[in-house]
Design a protein around this nucleic acid. Structure first.
Lengths: 131, 131
DNA sequence: CTCTCTGCAAAACGTTTGCAATACT
DNA sequence: AGTATTGCAAACGTTTTGCAGAGAG
């Protein structure tokens, strides 16, 4: 894990993720980074996204509707998926660490972490519905 | 949605799911149902799993390590994925409805539901580690 | 010089779909 | 008879991988 060499492509991927609040798919990252590196390949994008996620520098979000999404921040937070427009939205609320303890009581084993994801209608879509 | 005809294959799929506490992938369901219906196709298994999930008769579990899993019960409960053996284990704890309200306070929109999934080491794997 | 990283293309993987035949009502 | 469902095979979208060459240390 320490045998890591610098790569401009990886840096660009990281920078792009840091610059957006969206939660791009690997393909979207590819499209954008390609503006700076026209010859970059999708394979390289995937390799670096996985590498960065494994190193804990970015996070990988598994969604129920196929196609993982990536998030430039590893600050603990949750996500809401808008059931109307499909957007993935950051939800900064206090980490629900307590539910791990709750879960542990009901589980034959030991809980290390959790993920949670919310479904609902985002502000923009709510407005459109009211019209 | 009301134009639904009985099918022995669908019934067998439902029965198999009801008979197991595991959380089989579509392929595992296919393997088992094939014992009774040797000519059933994977496409049919997928079509029925999705149909049953849409009707709310079974549930579909999205996991981070590719390959959805299916659960014969729709009773609200959570799941733990063992980081050691990969098993998906039922976790019956009081539904965390309160976290929806918590989330709503931090969200510009309205929350309808949530999913949560835990990661940890199951009892069996803990024992093996102790040895 | 060595070892990692890249681009490319092919393959793997899980899932969906079009079609003609079959089963249900 | 009419229509939902099936088996089959092909297609799909996403992700991974093998390889030879380029780039970093």
């Amino acid at each position: 894990m320490a045998n890591l060499k610098y790569s401009r492509q990886r840096e660009a991927i990281k920078e792009f993720l840091a610059s957006t609040k969206e939660h791009p798919t690997a393909d979207t990252v590819y499209m954008h980074v390609r503006e700076e590196f026209p010859r970059i390949s999708l394979g390289t994008v995937y390799r670096n996204l996985n590498l960065l996620a494994d190193m804990g520098e970015i996070s990988k979000i598994t969604t129920p509707d196929g196609g993982d999404r990536f998030d430039g921040t590893i600050e603990p937070h949750y996500h809401v998926i808008c059931t109307s427009c499909g957007k993935v939205i950051d939800l900064y609320m206090e980490p629900l660490d307590s539910i791990d303890k709750l879960a542990e009581k009901c589980f034959d084993g030991s809980i290390e972490s959790h993920t949670a994801m919310f479904f609902g209608t985002c502000g923009d879509c709510l407005k459109k519905k009211t019209k």
